Amino acid sequence: MAVTDMTERYQHIYDEMKQSFKWSFVDKKVLMHAAMTFAGDNIPFDAPRFKDLADRIAKDASFFSPLKQDKRVTVAAVLESKYEDPFRHYQYMKKIYDLLIQKKFKRGSASYSTALVILSAASRSISLDQHVDRTMAIHKGMKKEHPFITSEHDYPLASLLADQVDDPAVLMTRIEEIYHRLSKAGFRKGNDLQFLSHILSLDTDHEPAELVRRTAAAKDEWKKNGMKHKGVHYPITGLLALAGGDSLLFEIIAETAADLNRRKSFRWEKDWNSLVAANFTMKTTLDPDESLTVSMYTSLNTILEAQNAAMVAAASAGAVAATSSNN
Rank of each mutant, 00 (worst) to 15 (best):
F45T: 00
L239K: 02
S81F: 04
T302S: 12
R267D: 09
I175K: 00
E269A: 14
H153I: 08
Q130K: 13
E251M: 07
H131E: 15
S120H: 13
Q19W: 09
R214S: 13
K71S: 13
M17Y: 08
K270S: 14
Y90F: 15
K144C: 07
G108R: 02
A321Q: 11
L275N: 08
A314T: 14
A319F: 12
E152F: 12
F38Y: 07
A2N: 14
S274F: 05
S62N: 11
T37L: 10
Y179I: 03
T135S: 15
A209M: 06
L119Q: 03
V78Q: 09
L211K: 08
T173Y: 09
H131Q: 15
L292Q: 01
M6G: 13
A185F: 02
H180V: 09
E84K: 14
S123F: 04
A321I: 13
E290G: 01
E176H: 13
L161D: 00
S274Y: 02
A257W: 07
G226H: 05
F148M: 14
Y92E: 15
S123N: 15
K68T: 06
L240F: 09
Y14E: 05
A257L: 05
H89N: 13
A217S: 12
K144Q: 15
L202F: 03
D27C: 05
A137C: 06
I126G: 07
A257Y: 05
T281D: 02
F87I: 10
K283S: 12
L182E: 06
K283W: 08
V232S: 14
F25L: 14
K264Y: 09
V132A: 03
Q130C: 07
Y10E: 04
N42G: 08
Q91C: 10
A76L: 00
Q11G: 03
A121D: 11
D220N: 12
S299V: 05
F63C: 09
P168T: 04
A319W: 10
A162L: 02
H233G: 02
P168L: 06
D5V: 10
D129Q: 14
F187H: 04
